[in-house]
Design a protein around this nucleic acid. Structure first.
Lengths: 135, 135
DNA sequence: ATATCATTAGAAAACAATTATCTTTTAAAT
DNA sequence: ATTTAAAAGATAATTGTTTTCTAATGATAT
């Protein structure tokens, strides 16, 4: 049993070829929109329905092993859950990268100021990637 | 000329009653979704069209004096631009609050790590507000 | 391996959100 | 006051997402 199959089983979600392809794609591409997933999977799996992508992405989000990443001026992307991290986005080419930043201090400060109990942090930094910065 | 009219003029966007009401509402409520805006404005301005809200919000975003705030599990909210700040959201009641946090250190760290030129920071912290935390 | 049962996939329709189009109205500059 | 470009409002068109229904399939117990 490979790790993708395992990922589904561990999360108590039935293993289907379509679901395996979704997690394989996300593993390979890190961040993908619904439509990118659909296009990618259709290549090797022409019969898949867009509704299947939606239903499965939503199911996986509920199970808690994939995550939606909201990005300014782009459709949301989805990624496999991994240790907490932030995202850097190029405003020109749209590229999205993971970055590990320690937000604990900031989160604590926010908790003290607002008296909220903070559970999630979503930080998206937008700017120019090295390539687009160069010209 | 009041400050809302001034805000529109400064941004070279024609002053209309509908636009004045939009910025007045946003000034009063700080964060509003398209539909909240629509419902609020319809009360005193029953003839306004939803399309007018959309067109104007988009125009104002382009002019750069209102901003979209993307929030997990909620429709986007819009706010008047003011000094850079972050947002805290209650996962139970949905309330959104502004919070001033210094992200400069983090942004610089990100720039060093990724070699991106960082231009915008969007931090959304989710959790439980004092009331919902209490039960 | 086979039968059973609940879940899923796929296709289409329904629904929701957003944008575009067109005509009438209006702001603002002459 | 007149003119003109832009905006409002109504509707249609488009896009994105969810639901519904039936056939197919994965998991479990034989």
């Amino acid at each position: 049993m490979n790790k993708f199959e395992q990922l589904l089983r561990v999360n108590h979600i039935k293993v289907t070829p379509q679901r395996l392809r979704i997690v394989e794609e996300l593993y390979g591409h890190v961040h993908m929109s619904i439509d990118e997933l659909y296009q990618a999977i259709k290549k090797k799996f022409p019969t898949i329905s867009l509704a299947t992508i939606y239903k499965n992405i939503n199911a996986m989000i509920e199970k808690g092993f994939i995550l939606e990443v909201q990005i300014p001026n782009q459709k949301s992307k989805y990624e496999l859950v991994k240790p907490s991290h932030s995202h850097v986005v190029c405003q020109t080419c749209g590229k999205v990268e993971d970055i590990t930043l320690d937000l604990d201090t900031i989160a604590h400060k926010a908790a003290n100021l607002t008296h909220y109990q903070i559970k999630e942090e979503a930080l998206v930094l937008s700017g120019l990637c090295p390539a687009c910065k160069a010209g």
